[in-house]
């Protein structure tokens, strides 16, 4: 089994871990942690792609853009989370049940 294959499988496992974190946590900020963990694997995938097809420069350009977007997302998420904290006094996503059905 080649090294890129191992990286691929490890990345998939890490994405799985990130999704589990996203789903299982009850804390709003830990949603960011789950998302970030998964995104690490995804950026590694992009780089792995460049590594395999010889377009590393392009892959790096992608990764840079992804990172910028990721940061913006993290900012917005934490902004919403903090606003919600100011409303509810807690970061528990189980409080978010007023809209349903």
């Amino acid at each position: 089994m080649s090294m890129p294959t191992v990286v691929l499988i490890a990345g998939l496992v890490m994405i799985l871990a990130g999704c589990v974190g996203l789903i299982r946590t009850h804390h709003m900020l830990k949603i960011i942690i789950g998302l970030e963990v998964a995104m690490k694997a995804v950026t590694v995938f992009i780089i792995l792609g460049g590594f395999l097809n010889g377009r590393m420069a392009l892959a790096q350009a992608f990764v840079v853009t992804v990172i910028v977007v990721e940061v913006v997302t993290a900012v917005v998420l934490s902004g919403i989370a903090i606003s919600l904290y100011r409303k509810h006094g807690s970061m528990d996503i189980r409080n978010l049940r007023s809209l349903k059905g």
Binding site: I23, H26, I93, L96, R97, S98, K100, G101
Partner: peptide
């Protein structure tokens, strides 16, 4: 269906997965 979509973020994510 309405009862099933009970507003829980976790459930939403699980359904999506």
């Amino acid at each position: 269906l309405r009862r099933f979509w009970n507003g829980s973020v976790s459930r939403y994510l699980i359904i999506a997965v």
